[in-house]
Write a protein that binds this DNA or RNA. Structure first.
Lengths: 223, 223
DNA sequence: TCAATAGTGTCTGTCAGACATTATTAC
DNA sequence: GTAATAATGTCTGACAGACACTATTGA
């Protein structure tokens, strides 16, 4: 148990997803003090008797609290100080997670996906952490396959472009996007097609490798 | 004091500098257990009764242990787990610091600047932390003024180019470097010149702003 | 045929890399 | 003048952005 001489060690996660064409973050309703009943980022204490490291801790918590598994996860930054948590001098190792919208099983009242443009005031420094997470996504998204983590295993180029546009918050020219993405060799043609309503079917691709970076950048043109 | 139920909270710093044209890291000789007498990264416990946050903690330690102040400092990543420190489940919030070589007052026997290509085997996971720090510098250096932190306040373009080349580990074409750097408006002409031995004097510049990023990249041509 | 979306062709401006050239100092 | 380094000029290939164009489906 924490005491006056040691820091409280916690982990938090900014779980981002795309739903209804908007970038959203997973918030959960805190069941215990402090800030009981407030919406906040999912997180909790590191358990030194069972967690292999901070990433294991946040994976355990996301699985228990939100039923989320198998998502893309990377460390974001660590927030610390005497005042950010009323329980005492605390450390939060914050993580960024990306997950396809459909994969989240939201338990109404306990959890919610909230648009990042429509956030309530959040306890701790969770507002700042979310801001940093979105900045990381937008900074890294332009030269990596990070935004593809919002998609399922298979997707069309139009779907991929849409995920990039929502993730980056900018419009992208479809010709440039296709040319770039196809020339990079990061996609594998599945040989299948998918058709929506009343239009030409689109080829279905999947990522050749999990998540990687490329040297060239995607566009920055404003919408 | 740490006990079996809480994590040990520490901070470490990878202090990089350029000396003799090589990228070097500051190591200090551990005066206490564990690994007493081994060379390791400077670091220590967070003191919840005096530190405002992790960055304050590492600044305090660098000042006390190595007499280093006023350096560029950013958070790198946080390393954690039950096995990385023999004293128990530990957290280390690692930082990346850049400092001009001349600014370091090295106390022989207690501290040393060691070339990153010639590192001894280090305790804890300090080898991995240094590797990550250099990767961060090389990744971020190509599109930011980070490597300028290795220089003093005033410098010539040739000195700046040399700092970039050492920091990035690549050669850069001087014409391209000058064109890019001058067109970005990140430098202010001091109006002064500096002359070495037997050659044309070079204009002296300083950074217009502290440390910033730019959208375009510097070259990646191999040396 | 039309509507709608998927996908291609091509022009143009920007810019990094390469490298030749000129400028300024000490001797 | 030479040697050495600072600084500039210029050509070229790569590529992003723009946008016109063609292709494939259902109705």
């Amino acid at each position: 148990m924490p005491n006056e001489m040691t820091a409280i060690s916690t982990v938090d996660a900014v779980v981002l997803s795309i739903l209804e064409g908007e970038l959203k973050v997973l918030l959960h309703c805190r069941p215990v003090q402090p800030y009981e009943g407030s919406w906040a980022l999912p997180g909790g204490f590191i358990r030194v008797d069972e967690d292999a490291d901070a990433e294991s801790a946040i994976r355990r918590i996301l699985k228990d609290k939100a039923g989320v598994t198998g998502l893309y996860l990377e460390q974001l930054a660590t927030y610390s100080g005497p005042d950010r948590d009323p329980r005492g001098w605390s450390i939060s190792i914050a993580h960024l997670a990306l997950v396809p919208g459909a994969k989240l099983a939201i338990d109404e009242g306990k959890a919610a996906l909230v648009s990042i443009d429509d956030l309530p005031k959040l306890p701790f420094d969770h507002g700042k952490i979310i801001k940093d997470a979105v900045a990381r996504l937008r900074g890294k998204g332009a030269y990596s396959t990070l935004p593809a983590s919002f998609l399922g295993k298979n997707f069309t180029l139009t779907e991929m472009q849409s995920a990039y546009e929502t993730a980056l918050g900018t419009r992208v020219d479809s010709s440039s996007f296709r040319r770039k993405v196809l020339s990079l060799g990061i996609l594998t043609d599945t040989g299948r097609s998918r058709q929506g309503d009343n239009r030409r079917p689109a080829k279905v691709y999947r990522l050749t490798k999990a998540v990687g970076t490329f040297d060239r950048t995607l566009g920055h043109s404003a919408g």
